[in-house]
């Protein structure tokens, strides 16, 4: 056996082994939702016999007056409205940075970027106090408003706009198009892939954001899925493992479907160009 084939086999074995690591929790979760608690305690890697899948699903869906569907609806509302508004606003801001030389441009960009680095744990607390004074605590607006500010999105939007050549804007300007028209007709179609990518990243980000709703919401009826599933208990307040697992499964299912179907838009984004 040549050295080359030896290394090739080693690499394949390692890559396969890592596949097991990365897939295992998904597998275990999928098996877990077919079991009741006593079957979970049997610690088997196989599906539960008899299967309790239908029962688990039915119990999650009907849990506390079908509150699961409210959580699902809230998650979709927060993620869709938040991501779309946030990215639209970011694209307008990115367009301004790309298209115009204006007073305070550099300073503003640095301030915006600097604030992208301030951790959510530092701003969420003052946001809580601010919303409490405004009477916004435990409203849907309290989750939506902060998600409209997509600081990271502005930065990436500037990078996307940079890829649109100057000539395109200039030609439109000579044709007498006004600035808003240039943004809508020339700009947006050209950055559409970037727009979609940012929308998806923001959608997933909001869908998965646990800390903000944890802080600003009290009522279960306004919670998103990600927060709702951590509140599932039996009437005595004890955790119900099989229901939490089943609800977790339905929390990640939309994400997996999105990722699998729109994979080409899920480009990981990093600060360096």
């Amino acid at each position: 056996m040549s050295r080359r084939t030896f290394w090739s086999i080693v690499v394949t074995v390692v890559l396969m082994g890592l596949c097991v690591y990365f897939i295992f929790p998904f597998y275990w979760l999928t098996m877990g939702i077919t079991k009741n608690v006593s079957q979970l305690y049997q610690k088997s890697l196989l599906p539960g016999v008899p299967s309790h899948l239908a029962e688990n699903v039915q119990r999650v869906f009907s849990y506390e007056n079908r509150t699961f569907f409210r959580w699902l609806g809230n998650s979709f509302l927060y993620a869709t409205v938040g991501a779309f508004t946030g990215v639209t606003i970011a694209s307008l801001a990115g367009f301004a940075f790309r298209r115009y030389d204006f007073i305070g441009k550099k300073a503003l960009f640095i301030v915006i970027l600097g604030c992208a680095m301030v951790p959510g744990y530092a701003t969420t607390l003052p946001i809580f106090i601010m919303f409490r004074n405004l009477g916004l605590i435990d409203t849907r607006l309290a989750v939506l408003l902060p998600s409209f500010v997509n600081v990271f999105g502005v930065y990436l939007m500037v990078a996307y706009w940079n890829q649109v050549p100057d000539e395109m804007f200039d030609a439109a300007e000579i044709d007498g198009a006004n600035d808003l028209l240039i943004y809508l007709r020339i700009g947006l179609p050209n950055v559409l892939p970037g727009f979609v990518t940012l929308f998806l990243l923001a959608f997933v980000g909001i869908w998965n954001n646990f800390f903000l709703p944890l802080v600003v919401l009290n009522s279960r009826s306004r919670m998103p899925l990600i927060l709702g599933i951590t509140t599932i208990t039996d009437p005595q307040g004890f955790p119900v493992y099989n229901l939490t697992l089943t609800a977790s499964f339905f929390t990640i299912l939309p994400l997996l479907v999105l990722f699998a179907t729109l994979q080409r838009y899920f480009k990981p984004q990093l600060y360096v160009g």
Binding site: N208, I226, T251, I252, L255, L256
Partner: peptide, 12 residues
């Protein structure tokens, strides 16, 4: 496959 876990929220 390796990327999949990244789409999962930290809570789940």
């Amino acid at each position: 496959i390796y990327y999949l876990p990244y789409t999962i929220p930290g809570i789940v």
